[in-house]
Amino acid sequence: MQFLRKQFPVMLAFVMGMTMFIREFVPAKFSERLYYGFTNWAIVITGFAAVFAILSLLHHHMNKVRRRAQGYGYSVITILAFIQMIILGLVFSVEPRTPAGWEYQWMFVPMQATMFATLAFFIASAAFRAFRARTWEALALLIAGLIVMIGRVPIGEYISTHLGTFADWIMNNPNMAGFRGIVLGVALAQVAIAVRIIFGIERTYMGGGD
């Protein structure tokens, strides 16, 4: 039992990790089958986890209703919206000509687009507060930001015709250099964490204790 709880998961992670790693270097047919087999299995596992997740969501909101927590009425909305949607969805499917599809069309999509559009407000206020030359670093941020921002709209041309060209230069040179450095570092860190997981050195994800 102790073996199943402690050693077995670590061994399983090692075997799975090594198999999938080596698979990448084998061009033969079975290698591809292994890949799709694994990802399909992962999809099934996620499906079960989704049931657990939904129970968690419902439990969270039921709890609020039961405790009559402040604003529990809104939790009722979530629960009702979820239940009607999943029933309609599973019974009539989710295509556009069905009730679920109609709700998707006229509720889901506009709310999604609106949340996305709020970014215009946030980006403006973030720019206003962050683009201050408090330090030399902030000054670099400020100048690069202003040039690229204004170089992309027609009014930039009225300030200087070279502004657009310079904005492109910043995007293609210093900007690219910075992100290249980040990506190189991240890639190395990812190799390191992957190796730690495969070799069972990093096992936070398995929890601890019993």
């Binding site: 969270h60 996305f116 994800y205 929890g207």
Partner: peptide
């Protein structure tokens, strides 16, 4: 699992409440 283990390591397994780690939705903006 991780939070539970973290609380247990700190010697306060009783403080863990599974309802504090909850699911919302898979939709990005929702």
């Amino acid at each position: 699992e991780i939070v539970k283990a973290g609380y247990a390591d700190a010697g306060r397994p009783d403080a863990y409440n599974a309802d504090d780690i909850f699911f919302l939705t898979e939709d990005q903006f929702s």
